[in-house]
Structures are given as structure tokens and as C-alpha cells.
Nucleic acid binder design. Sequence first.
DNA 1: TGGCTGTCAAGAGCAGTGCTCTCGATTGTG
DNA 2: CACAATCGAGAGCACTGCTCTTGACAGCCA
Lengths: 239, 239
Amino acid sequence: MPKLRTARERARSELTREIKDEARRQLATHGAEALSLRAVARELGVVSSALYRYFPSRDDLLTALIIDAYDAIGQQVEDADARRRRGDFLGRWRACCHAVRDWGLAHPREYALIYGSPIVGYQAPRDTVDSAARVPRALLAVVRDCAEAGALEPPSGLPRAAARQVDQLVTTVEDLRLRGVPPAALGAVLTAWTQLYGMVSFELFGHLEGLFDDKRALFEHSTGQLAQLIGLRPRSRRG
Amino acid sequence: MPKLRTARERARSELTREIKDEARRQLATHGAEALSLRAVARELGVVSSALYRYFPSRDDLLTALIIDAYDAIGQQVEDADARRRRGDFLGRWRACCHAVRDWGLAHPREYALIYGSPIVGYQAPRDTVDSAARVPRALLAVVRDCAEAGALEPPSGLPRAAARQVDQLVTTVEDLRLRGVPPAALGAVLTAWTQLYGMVSFELFGHLEGLFDDKRALFEHSTGQLAQLIGLRPRSRRG
DNA sequence: TGGCTGTCAAGAGCAGTGCTCTCGATTGTG
DNA sequence: CACAATCGAGAGCACTGCTCTTGACAGCCA
């Protein structure tokens, strides 16, 4: 990756970043569907057609924001994981779960952009999948480390039809360079990730409105149950 | 509810329905954000400003579609439930879960409208909550019937902080005229409903793309696990 | 240094949008 | 019958994404 050389290249990458920053600001305040290229250009003191030099269409700008959002939440989860002692599997698991929720609460529009209704004419480019996989990969890494330390007590086996589907997952996970997770635990992690997504989305999308006042306490309880489901035991070794 | 009397009232309610039908058609094919009042009017052979006699704004039309969607999926779940023998609690539970998924697969855009990203400037009117509650209420009814038949083996107690939140739920559920569900089971139903939502949304929103080929088998397995979590036992009595 | 080429922002313009307002025509009611 | 309410049509406003052309500038080769 060469340094930025010419003044042109430098200006280009800088303006690209500024466009994304302003777009992200508008996304955060007005929502994705209200994101207007003209408004972004106006705010940047530039004419709207100029933006098309940097992003071929509004969808491409949104795609860039989507990738950034996936990377942001992925980074937050990875950081929360890394702050824990490597052998504290239960603590790492809880930290990852809370990182997902906390990021969602802090960036609800961006969360909705990546985990809410898919955009209609929009087919996720290959670029997004790597970034999108960071959160589930972080969750899997905790379980793999736990399994490698011999502290995992995976749930009992699956019925045949479900087991075949999980087997299919195994090959994908191996692509993620995350061998070492027992297949039975893999199914449990899938359940847990689904549950985690469901809880945060329910809360952020307003489906729990007026039902609870301390949603964090409920979330905290659920993360513990999920750890139990997967078979993460609080026992820890030196990391 | 008086019969439609004058020709004007009759024409009004008919055109209102036609507008919603055409809007729903466009919603299904082009998605919510592409729903255009002008396009609806064009298709109905009427000028766009005429629609404002029936719906004050685009958001109001969308609200009507949201309520209809909540009622449609609620009705589908209630019907699936009613087709089972009253004492077949496990069968009723599975039927309800599959009804949610099947309706979502058949109406992905409408599903996204009610369960996906919330619309930005949009505050759900009170009218929607009754319709939105039909699905969870149907799930709860199965559990209540099971409990009343003495066939429920609810999970063990919750930690204090979580229990207090579930207690808060109890009053809401009593408003739904669904007394008789043990609080511990209530928490489990909340978890199950969240998980159900997470699974269907993951699938419909494309987050499982390329990971499984038989998503139904996995779903089937999960619904059984959820029934187990709640404490629904296959034992049945005459209904 | 001179000139060519590719890149840039600006501006006009097109087709579309939600929404408002006015204006006749039609309908229901006192 | 006459008045009032309601209706659809149409023009118009401000906005959108996007395209095309134009003229200015920077980078590169001779």
C-alpha cells in the first residue's frame, strides 16, 4: 500500500473521507432513507454533481457506509474482547455481547442500516461479507479458545437434519480460520448469535417499548444464559 | 358498526381499499421506500392529489399498511394455532412458529416493514400496538393453555434483577387478558419470541445467505428447542 | 519549457417525488 | 330548491438522484 503521492491523490482520498463523514452524520441524525447527496454536497460547500466523481451513485455511498458500520461494530467487539484476560471466557463472552448492544445503542441508525430491512434493489457486494463476519467471528473465537483450553462443555448432539446443516457451517467457519469449535457448540453459537441479534434489534427497533425499564438487566441475564447454552464455563486458565 | 349508507361513503371506503391494495402491491414488488403516491394514483387512473382526500400523507398510508401487516401475520398465526387440537401444545407451538416464518417468506417486504428498520420520523401510533401484540399473544396463549392443563414444566427461577423486569411484564400480559402464565415461563416465552424473531429476520434479511441450504430444517430444530426451554411437554389432554 | 491528457468542479437540465392550493363539478341534506 | 360538504383535476413549489457539457487545472512526456 503506497503512500499518497501526488496532490491530486491526496485531495481525492481526503474529500472521499469528508463525504463519508458528512454522510454518516446525516445518516445518524436523519436516517438512511433521508440521506441526500445534494444535502451532503451543500454541507461540504460543493455542487452535487461533484460527488459523482467519488461515488458513482447514492447506493455506492451507502455501501461504503455499510462496510464502515460493519467494521466499526466489529472493531468494538474485538476491542472489548481483547481487554479481557484471554482465559476469562465467560467475561469475554459477556463483554462481546455488551459491545454489540452498546454500539447499537450509540449508533442506532447505523445498526438499522446493517441489521435492519435490506435495501431493495441492493445486492450486498462481496466486500461486505468480510466486515460483516467480524462480530460472529469474535464470538466464535471466544468459544474456540475455551474449547482449546478444555473448558468447554458443549451441548448434546443435534438431530440428524439440523446436524447436516451445521456440518455445512463447519466448512464456512474453517474458511474463517476458526477451526477447533466442536460442531455441537457451533450450533449453539449460531443460536446465541441469533438471540443476541434478536434482543438488540427488538430493543433498538422499539418492540420492547414500555415493557421494561431496565433492559440492560434483562440483557445481562440473557447473555449468561447463552453462555450456559454454549457450554462456556466460568473456569479460567492463564491467558 | 352501521352499514354503508350513502353512495359517497360506499365509494369512499371502496377507493380507500383500492388505494391500500395497490400500495401493498407496490410495497411487495418495489419495497417500502419506493412506494410512491404518484405511482399508486397513476395505476388507479387518478390524479395524485386525489389520494390526499383518503390519506393525509404518505406516512399515514404506510401506517395503514403496517397495521394491516401486523393483522395479517397475527391472523395467520392464530389460524395455524386454531387448526391444531387444543391439547396438542407442542404441535400448536410449532405451528405458530412456522406460521411466522411462512408468512415472512411469503411477504418479505411487509415483514421488513413491521420488523425491520423503524421509519425515521415515525412514531408508532397507539393503533398499531394491539395488532402488533397478536403474534406474541398467540404464543402466550399456547403456554397459558399448557399451564392450565398442568402440562407445563417451567424453567427454574430467574436472578433477582431479571425477575423484577419480568414482573413488570406480568402486568402488561394481564392487560392482554392472558393470566395464568407462570412468571418463570413468561421470561422463557420472551426469550423464545426474541429467538423466533431473530431467526426469521436473519433469514429474510439475508444474513444466512450461503451458510445453509435447508434453513427450514434448522428452524424446525430450533422451535423444538424453544418449546423445551419454555417447558412445553408433548403430553396432551383432550381439547 | 511547451503541449497533451486525464481529472476536476460547476452549472444546466431531466424525470421523478411529496405535498399544497385553487377551481369547478358532483353529491347529500336541511 | 338551495346551501354545504366533498370530490377529482390541475397547476405549482421545493426537493430528489442522476446525466451531460463546459471550462479550468494538474500531472506527465518530450
